[in-house]
């Protein structure tokens, strides 16, 4: 485990173990279980932890409801919009070639703005600047559909992370390791330390954002990574960050860095 790091505040637990006169062997076991970052080779997509039925839904494009959003996204891609009367396709051409691998490297560093933007914000920047159209609201069907369509073009490609994102990734890491909310839990306490266990009936995953936007059975709909993050914040009784907040982008950047090299599954199905 990392010593002296500010990440996981596990001291109280260890202190209890000591107070109870826990054996050295037991402590060694605790140390092994709390190993900080998950070793690269032990990382597992949430897909591998799903039921066979859910995996079958994701494996078959005619059973994956996110494909309905994909059809909408494809239509929007080719539809002229805004005062410029320009469609995405007028600049980018066919998404199957121009958008290949794009979603695998977002959030990406935007040199002009000097900060990272995630894929939803990139789409909206294109809308406001190039199409001169109103930005699409977060979690609106149109924005999700376009994101699904763009992300689909990176399916199977390895997730990449840009070194220029380093400060933002560190900011995301700090949020990830910070205890928050009434339950006083950090992301790491579930997704690094206890990903092989269950939380009530649900599998605790490692929290790799490999398949966003996802079709979540609980939502009966497609949703973004930020919606999923807000879910977790509400779960630990913390106040969720607003959609588009820099903290969200930092978390996204950190999670993508954490999942670097893993294959994009977008649009995935999750329970």
């Amino acid at each position: 485990m990392r010593l002296g790091g500010s990440r996981h505040s596990r001291r109280p637990r260890l202190a209890v173990e000591l107070a109870c006169g826990g054996l050295v062997a037991a402590l060694a076991g605790v140390a092994a279980a709390f190993s900080g970052d998950i070793p690269l080779a032990e990382r597992r997509s949430g897909y591998e932890m799903m039921s066979r039925a859910s995996r079958a839904m994701q494996d078959d494009d005619t059973a994956n409801p996110a494909m309905l959003w994909l059809l909408d996204g494809e239509a929007t891609w080719n539809l002229p919009a805004g005062e410029a009367r320009r469609a995405c396709a007028d600049c980018h051409g066919s998404a199957t070639t121009s958008m290949k691998g794009v979603a695998a490297r977002y959030p990406a560093f935007d040199g002009a703005r000097g900060r990272p933007v995630d894929i939803e914000e990139r789409i909206n920047l294109c809308r406001t600047e190039r199409q001169q159209a109103a930005p699409l609201p977060f979690e609106s069907r149109d924005l999700l559909a376009l994101t699904v369509y763009v992300a689909r073009q990176s399916r199977g490609m390895p997730i990449q992370s840009d070194e220029r994102l380093r400060p933002v990734i560190e900011m995301g890491r700090a949020i990830y390791g910070r205890r928050q909310g009434q339950l006083n839990l950090s992301c790491a306490q579930c997704h690094d330390d206890n990903w092989d266990k269950r939380l009530a009936g649900n599998v605790v995953t490692q929290g790799h954002p490999t398949g966003y936007p996802i079709y979540r059975l609980e939502w009966q709909s497609v949703g973004s990574l930020q919606r999923r993050l807000r879910n977790c914040f509400i779960g630990i009784r913390a106040e969720p960050y607003d959609y588009g907040a820099p903290e969200h982008v930092a978390l996204e950047a950190f999670l993508m860095w954490r999942a670097r090299g893993m294959a994009v599954e977008s649009p995935a199905v999750r329970p």
Partner: peptide, 9 residues
């Protein structure tokens, strides 16, 4: 035959 339709239900 497999059918999937978008609807909020």
């Amino acid at each position: 035959i497999r059918t999937l339709v978008s609807h909020v239900m």
